[in-house]
Design a protein around this nucleic acid. Structure first.
Length: 529
RNA sequence: GCUCCGUUAGUCUAGUGGCCAAGGAUUUAGGCCUUUCAAGCCUGCGGCACGGGUUCGAAUCCCGUACGGAGCACCA
């Protein structure tokens, strides 16, 4: 008997392919700066699978799941790790705390690649012994020309002994930068030029000293592995079963597959996500942000205008909302352009139920109102949760309301109706009249000065009005480095009710203004409307 | 130039030959509710890039075109 079943909507991420036993994954950032919103896609997706395949997760089984944090810090010269004691910056520590904030957990294991250079060098020797790699003495231009012509270079057929000796020279410092690299043999005729005999190891410049070498945390190394080699070896060593990474690394998978074949290993299952651009933040990179901060254009990695997790955390975004945002987008190879609007909607769901309401009066105007003194307003801390209690505001003759709210007749929220002209007026009644604007107000003597820092990102309408089609890719002058756009940071000043002092560190909703994270009794940072 | 990936409403996504006259989220318009222009509830607008083919039947399979993106580093 055949039964037709209605297709069921799948919620959340697709199941991982080819799961047998424990699921082991890794998040592998370069610690050249803290994590950004872009990195958080990877962490969020990986953390979701980590949860799904945990022993007690929805897809779980006894073997469980692991998510490793691996610092891919094998570049002492171009993108060295961020370690600036004077500024208190440490990429490793910043990423560990970003990871913990976002996932709520510590990683299953932490691997620091620069601790393990000797292991990679030994792995390279193993690869040479099986005939999978050779030491190439061509300079970069020469090799490129040969490679583009699908022609093997003269070093490709050297003996294993010769290669081993050459590699020793690279490791012990007798071979200088540029004089030799170790290449993995692939297929010099391969149709894809990027896959032909790729570089596994290079000798770094004598003055390119890794920050951890300077600090004596690791011994001095001359020959450092490139990402594709280090990552491939480490994935095998750590028993990684599933690699999930950006689509830009598709060719890495193909390169590394050659290496795995030489070694007789099985390559992990690999999934990709497409390129993401976030409308509000434009084009950015960790190094661009670092330069801009060092130049004083931003106050730090947590400047509210920056796409760093530190900045989102400071503004009050819930980590769960950031994760939900990415999990909802799913894992697709399509390149996407998203707006922060979706994150804000997700965050509102997370923050709104717990956020206390506060009266905030921007651009305050003083009113002298007869007949209000002593009247008491008891607005709820959260109208959707009466059990959260209320604040108490006692009116006095001098009140403030926002300049934009000024009108001949007004309803002071939770207090009553007034009429005024030129700043003087009187209390009329407290009969509910929905035709009046209901405005926030404060007793002058109790109101506290409050400033909200609000990043101003260009909206589509503004961009259209300004007549530009987004960031233009003008060719940079030789040697020039791309600069980060610096959006304005507005400082909105006003008065807030005294109970702000009990909200420090929390997200509040300033009624009819927006959600703000209170940093101190005097200052808040804009979250969203 | 060579190689690879992608294309469902404004945005993101579900969908792997009939259950799809395409579902969800967000955005947006309107309404309800409400002592916030928040939240909540209801309703509406809006989409399978294009052209061929296979098939009784295609968003789904094949071919081509267009458009978008990535890689071709002694960076990650």
């Amino acid at each position: 008997m055949l039964t037709i079943q209605k297709k069921e909507q799948r919620v959340g991420l697709k199941p991982l392919p080819n799961v047998k036993g424990k699921v082991v994954m890794r998040f592998a950032p370069n610690p050249n700066g803290p994590l950004s919103l872009g990195h958080s896609r990877g962490v969020s997706i990986l953390a979701e699978y980590w949860r799904m395949y945990a022993t007690d997760g929805p897809m779980g089984h006894a073997a469980g799941s692991e998510l490793l944090l691996r610092f891919d810090d094998t570049d002492p010269q171009v993108k060295p790790p961020l370690m600036d004691a004077a500024r208190g910056w440490n990429g490793y520590e910043m990423i560990r705390s970003d990871f913990k904030w976002l996932t709520g957990k510590d990683p299953s294991r932490v691997v620091v690649a620069s601790d393990r250079i000797k292991i990679y060098q030994d792995a390279a020797r193993d690869l040479i012994r099986v005939g999978g790699a050779y030491v190439c003495n061509c300079d970069a231009e020469t090799f490129k020309a040969l490679k583009d012509a699908k022609t093997p270079c003269p070093h490709r057929d050297q003996t294993i002994e010769h290669n081993l000796a050459g590699f020793d020279g690279m490791c012990n410092g007798t071979t200088k930068k540029g004089a030799a690299v170790l290449r993995v043999k692939t297929d010099i005729q391969h149709p894809h030029p990027g896959l032909r005999d790729w570089t596994a190891f290079r000798v770094v410049a004598t003055d390119a000293i890794h920050p951890r070498e300077t600090l004596g945390q690791i011994p001095r190394h001359h020959a450092w592995p490139l990402l594709d080699f280090q990552s491939a070896i480490e994935d095998h060593l750590q028993g990684v079963t599933h690699v999930i990474r950006g689509k830009d690394l598709m060719d890495s998978t193909r390169k590394q597959t050659f290496l795995y074949k030489h070694m007789g290993w099985t390559y992990p299952e690999t999934l990709y996500w497409g390129r993401v651009s976030v409308h509000e933040f434009g084009k950015f990179s960790t190094s661009m942000m670092r330069r801009a901060i060092e130049a004083g254009k931003f106050s730090g990695w947590d400047d509210p205008r920056l796409p760093c997790l530190a900045a989102l955390r400071r503004r009050g975004y819930s980590a769960g909302a950031v994760r939900a945002f990415w999990v909802n987008l799913g894992l697709t190879e399509k390149d996407i352009a998203v707006s922060l609007t979706n994150l804000d909607a997700e965050d509102a769901k997370a923050n709104e139920p717990g956020a206390h309401r506060l009266f905030f009066v921007p651009d305050p105007q003083l009113l002298h109102i007869d007949g209000v003194a002593g009247k008491v307003a008891k607005p709820l801390r959260n109208p959707n949760r009466p059990d959260a209690g209320h604040r108490t505001l006692t009116a006095e003759p001098h009140l403030v309301v926002a300049k934009d709210d000024l009108a001949p007749r007004l309803r002071l929220k939770d207090l009553g109706n007034i009429e005024q002209a030129g700043g003087h007026g009187k209390f009329t009644d407290d009969v509910m009249d929905r035709s009046l604007a209901i405005v926030q107000w404060l007793p002058k003597s109790l109101a506290l000065p409050f400033t909200v820092l609000k990043p101003h990102f260009e909206t589509d309408a503004e961009a259209a009005a300004a007549g530009d089609d987004g960031p233009e890719d003008e060719p940079l002058a030789p040697g020039a480095k791309p600069e980060l756009e610096v959006p304005p940071l507005l400082e909105i000043t006003g008065l807030v009710e005294p109970s702000v002092t009990t909200e420090v560190g929390k997200v509040v909703q300033l009624e009819r203004f927006g959600f703000v994270r209170v940093e101190s009794p005097e200052r808040g940072v804009w979250l969203h409307t």
